[in-house]
Design a protein around this nucleic acid. Sequence first.
DNA 1: CATCGGCCTGACCATCCGGTCAGAAAAAGA
DNA 2: TCTTTTTCTGACCGGATGGTCAGGCCGATG
Lengths: 208, 208
Amino acid sequence: MDDIGANRPKTRIQRRNTEAILEAALEVFSSNGFRGSTLDQIARAAGLSKPNLLYYFPSKEAIHSELLNGLLDVWLDPLRAIDPAGEPRDEIMTYVRRKLEMSREMPRESRLFANEVLQGAPRITDVLSGGLKSLVDEKAAVIRDWIEAGRLARIDPYHLIFSIWAMTQHYADFEVQVRAILGPEHDAFAEAEVFLDRLFDRLLSPDP
Amino acid sequence: MDDIGANRPKTRIQRRNTEAILEAALEVFSSNGFRGSTLDQIARAAGLSKPNLLYYFPSKEAIHSELLNGLLDVWLDPLRAIDPAGEPRDEIMTYVRRKLEMSREMPRESRLFANEVLQGAPRITDVLSGGLKSLVDEKAAVIRDWIEAGRLARIDPYHLIFSIWAMTQHYADFEVQVRAILGPEHDAFAEAEVFLDRLFDRLLSPDP
DNA sequence: CATCGGCCTGACCATCCGGTCAGAAAAAGA
DNA sequence: TCTTTTTCTGACCGGATGGTCAGGCCGATG
């Protein structure tokens, strides 16, 4: 009886260990990529033995997959939260801020996805062109309607969303580069918030 | 006499093969990362045998390093080309367009760097905080002067540069995601050019 | 056309890595 | 306490992978 993944962890030990494994795996996968990470690294980081990892998860793939799918929901929450009934610019600015906050609070998760997508998203193509696409389509339609109503500047909703992703995730994914250039004394995220506020404010104001 | 890297390739065969190796390595490294790529893959892609690779390069690391350093110059050319004597908005818009064009024409190079930086830039930290930092500092100073002269909106030069990097490279590095959402019929890069033109035009116009 | 030096290869090696397994240790239950 | 179930481990396996080496090939030069 190997497979524990099917029925959710019940005992205290199971919950504690699966959690430790996923935490360790996030740390290791996000900074080395899937292929660049080893079970030994994860085991060491989790304070467990390698065979014990494989007692809780059937394979390295399974750990990675569990992480990725478990995080996708959280990751897309801010986008889901865009409210068609809200004030357009507030909604989008809130989205930007929440996304930037996630980059600051969850850089490892950001890098995990970045690694995956960079390498062709072999393990989540179905999610990208399935759930993600339809969510983005939905929100793009909302933005389009706002534009039609003259409440936002005329800009492409899809590329607006891409630009938000690009700029917010940049501060997590390329943190080393940002820090190398700004130096350690700067609070990159605080500065980014000011900058992005200004940028999107200017971008979204309706034409006169 | 193993090391050929020291003195530049002389014979026709050397030039042809080192070129084939670097081309193949770019293809393989950029889509699998350093750790995810094997010498066999590179050898196959280059049409050579594995020992023959190691006749031209002393190690896998050496191939990767050669690629990375060789490309850094090309990669930063557009930034270098920003002319303090030029018209500020033209200079920056030209930079954006050239950077986007590079993402379209050299997506593999973009992904190679992205992979490296994502994983903490272990092999190019010195370049980041050395040459790159000083180049960015220099150009940021130029932009600051333009702002002081009232020829650009008051925005942080460093984060302006980050935003250009983020948005242009996004279309290369996350191409799979972009394509999954837009579908194959869209020309993402053409749309991006229009979008970024508008975005930076609005961002940079001096306040009244 | 001979020969010499640059070019190339098959076979091999040591190590790493994901994964297995028999059974020990520990916890839970009776 | 005794038994059963869960948790854990050392030893091991097979395949992949980076790298080596002795020697064969082959093209340029005299």
